[in-house]
């Protein structure tokens, strides 16, 4: 099972990564006019078993130690590389998914493929099986690390705490009329809930409910509080303010009803859909308000316990 998972992860990565991500960019090349004798020095000093032949940045052929040995046997060390190179070169494009490279290695059995830029034929790198393995390992490590940071941070907190009942509570202060910071509480909450390892769908719903509640405080009051408490079975979002209050809650809940002033509507608020969005996202919603005293909103999202 676990093996299966790892295997599909690697497969996935071969689609995700591009040839350009893993290739070696510094390529040793030889010009077509160089003699076979000079080629010998290059192969020898760079310890490579073959090299692309490049003319003014363009790939024109490839030549390997094998070709070189043949020339040596015939005593042809003074002829130019272009006369003995393979002209029809199998190449890869930098923007191709890595899986194409994997297939090509299987299909041809070559040790390397030059990588060229689509359209221009310009040589931009070279890829070997070793590059593929290195690239995959690096990516696996990064992904693993990313995942680990998140999991490590907080998702075991409920299991680590020994108590009959555990509640985590987050407090956010919401500043009235501050449209630059508006929405930051909800964004912060979203990030926090993800880190706790809560199912993405529940996180999204909680974040939307919190956002709409936060925005109402920003738009209609001088400020208030957002309090979110998380237990293993539910998220509870409370928004409270001591603002003007809502005279008719039923009316406020109607889609399209809004008392937002023109200058705020111009910013895109005041569709009269916020409370409805909260209702649709929450499993339970309760809104109470007293004119002149303030408004209290509670929204609950139940979590499937795993």
């Amino acid at each position: 099972m676990a093996e299966d998972k790892k295997y599909t992860k690697i497969q996935e990565l071969t689609y995700e990564l591009k040839v350009g991500n893993v290739m070696t960019k510094k390529v040793v090349t030889v010009s077509p006019k160089k003699t076979i004798y000079k080629l010998r020095n290059i192969l020898h000093t760079k310890r490579i078993s073959g090299t692309p032949v490049v003319d003014k940045g363009k790939l024109v052929g490839i030549i390997s130690t094998e070709d070189f040995m043949k020339c040596l046997a015939k005593g042809e060390t003074n002829i130019p590389v272009e006369e003995r190179m393979t002209k029809k070169v199998e190449t890869l494009y930098a923007d191709e998914p890595l899986v194409h490279a994997v297939r090509k290695f299987d299909q041809y059995g070559f040790g390397r493929f030059p990588v060229i830029e689509r359209g221009k034929g310009k040589l931009v790198g070279i890829i070997t099986k070793g590059d593929i393995i290195k690239g995959l390992l690096k990516k696996l490590e990064i992904d693993y690390h990313k995942e680990e940071i998140h999991r490590y941070r907080a998702s075991h907190i409920f299991e680590d705490i020994v108590a009959d009942r555990t509640t985590l509570t987050f407090h956010y202060n919401v500043v009235g009329e501050d449209f630059n910071r508006a929405g930051e509480s909800a964004s912060g909450l979203k990030r926090t809930l993800f880190r706790l390892g809560i199912q993405p769908d529940s996180v999204r719903r909680a974040a939307i409910a919190a956002y709409e509640a936060e925005m109402n405080i920003v738009v209609f009051t001088e400020g208030g509080k957002l309090t979110v408490s998380v237990e293993t079975h539910r998220i509870k979002i409370e928004a409270s303010d001591s603002g003007p209050g809502i005279p008719d809650i039923e009316q406020a809940m109607q889609p399209g009803f809004s008392t937002a002033p023109e200058r705020i509507r111009e910013l895109g608020f005041g569709a009269g859909m916020g409370l409805l969005n909260i209702k649709n996202c929450a499993d339970k919603m309760n809104l109470t308000s007293k004119v002149g005293k303030g408004t209290h909103l509670e929204a609950i999202i139940y979590l499937n316990q795993r």
Binding site: F179, N180, A182, G183, G268, A271, M273, L276, N277
Partner: peptide, 30 residues
């Protein structure tokens, strides 16, 4: 209308709007 986008857009959508203030990023993130 921001609440309308929240209600009706889908994850991964491209959003076309004439709003320019910071809250559009909050909505897109959400």
């Amino acid at each position: 209308l921001l609440s309308d986008v929240i209600a009706n857009s889908k994850e991964g959508n491209i959003w076309i709007t004439l709003q320019t203030h910071p809250n559009i990023v909050a909505v897109a993130t959400l």
